[in-house]
Design a protein around this nucleic acid. Structure first.
Ligand SMILES: [Mn+2]
Ligand SMILES: [Mn+2]
Ligand SMILES: [Mn+2]
Ligand SMILES: [Mn+2]
Lengths: 225, 225
DNA sequence: AGCATAAGTTTGACGACTCAAACTCTAGGA
DNA sequence: TCCTAGAGTTTGAGTCGTCAAACTTATGCT
């Protein structure tokens, strides 16, 4: 709204880093890395966010969004994820390319266009990667899910979310028939090799490292319990 | 592409002013007015365009795009008009609001998204206002049309383009049933009052000044001639 | 405890875009 | 032809976001 495009990018980056950090604080260096700027630049931008009451920060410490900043970040995240959903569902683009496109489009979407888009898409709750789409009022519901790496041999599950969103990973998953909503079964696990073998319904068996599998979230449909 | 958002706006404004100017040159003052900046600002930006070989200009004279500048302007115009078409056809927004939205979105559309959008819309040749959409190769075909003010009493015609795109005008036309593609008949002309009375098919008679009518372009379907 | 290293901060500078205000040119009427 | 009103240009300054490089602080290893 009132924030500049750059400020919007900082808010979104801080929000996401804060969620995944243990201390619920975004380290300055990671903010800089996320935005592709030097840490000096990040430091001075964060000062501006603090002055605008969007974030809190003390020298040599981490960064934390205020309520106002969090609200703004969720608004941007909503735009980002709705745009991604549009690009995949309506325009048919591949889920491995939509993030970068949305990164620019998210700043050009007015509330009016956003709502029309939301209605056109049927008010979706999740984006193509299974990430939850914040609602207009800022509500955000994470889905219940477990890492695929925790499944046992013979378990059946449904893929609900992909955390590693590098193009390379997304293309591998798509090529293997592993997209959000797909059902699959664990064919075998080889703990020594750190590899598990998965068969998506209607596809052929693929091998994945347990590390890679830990970044794919699933919901158990039929398992050892 | 390589141009900044500001440069893109200047190129588009100069292109449009050049088309409608007698001398095929865009006056500096009108460039400034179109962009909402002072003439001093426009002067210095035009210098940059000249340095980038996008425009030609001599002191105290008008501005003229080079071939390269024209090509870039047509590319932006294509993005603008395709976005407008999308906002109306796919999202159902009113034709009186889409210009301002497209003014921002046009800068965030990559070639990939543009092509997907074009395909999704069925490669349209005209935008919601009847303005021709430049093709990917830069080709632009204006449609044959005459001002509605030149119709005679009893003439039947099809509305093909609206030149006055101020929100107020567009809302009046829509409320009257006068949208692109609509057929209509001239019920009466009162030259003394400078007013003509029009009946859109399936609607009721409306009065328009001949000045307003001159900015609505039509194609004669059945007339005196 | 002492210190090297990683992390963060500060400073000075720059490019892009803008304005206000002083200045210069041009074209058309007296 | 001369002069002036309107159009265009220049200059100086400011904001925003950025970098490089010098500097400061915190941490954890010996
Ligand atoms: Mn972004
Ligand atoms: Mn996503
Ligand atoms: Mn624009
Ligand atoms: Mn248009």
């Amino acid at each position: 709204m009132l924030a500049t495009e750059t400020v919007e990018n900082y808010l979104k980056a801080i929000y996401l880093l804060q969620r995944e950090a243990a201390a619920d604080e975004a380290p300055m260096g990671q903010i800089a890395a996320a935005l592709g700027v030097t840490t000096g630049t990040a430091t001075s931008m964060v000062k501006k966010l603090v002055a605008a009451k969007l974030a809190r920060h003390e020298r040599f410490g981490g960064v934390r969004l205020t309520t106002k900043g969090t609200r703004a970040a969720l608004d941007i995240l909503r735009r980002h994820r709705l745009v991604e959903t549009f690009l995949v569902d309506t325009l048919g683009l591949d889920w491995s390319v939509v993030h970068d496109e949305a990164e620019r489009l998210e700043h050009a979407i007015s509330p009016m266009v956003l709502d029309a888009l939301d209605r056109h898409l049927g008010r979706p709750a999740f984006d193509p990667h299974g990430d939850p789409i914040p609602r207009a009022d800022g509500a955000l519901q994470e889905s219940e899910a477990m890492p695929m790496s925790e499944l046992g041999s013979g378990d059946a599950a449904r893929l609900v979310r992909v955390l590693d969103q590098r193009g390379e990973s997304l293309r591998f998953l798509r090529a293997s028939g592993l997209k959000v909503g797909a059902t699959l079964r664990v064919v075998a696990i080889e703990p020594g090799a750190g590899v598990m073998r998965i068969r998506p319904d209607g596809g052929s068996v693929v091998s994945m490292s347990t590390t890679a599998a830990s970044r794919v979230l699933v919901r158990l449909t039929r398992g050892r319990h």
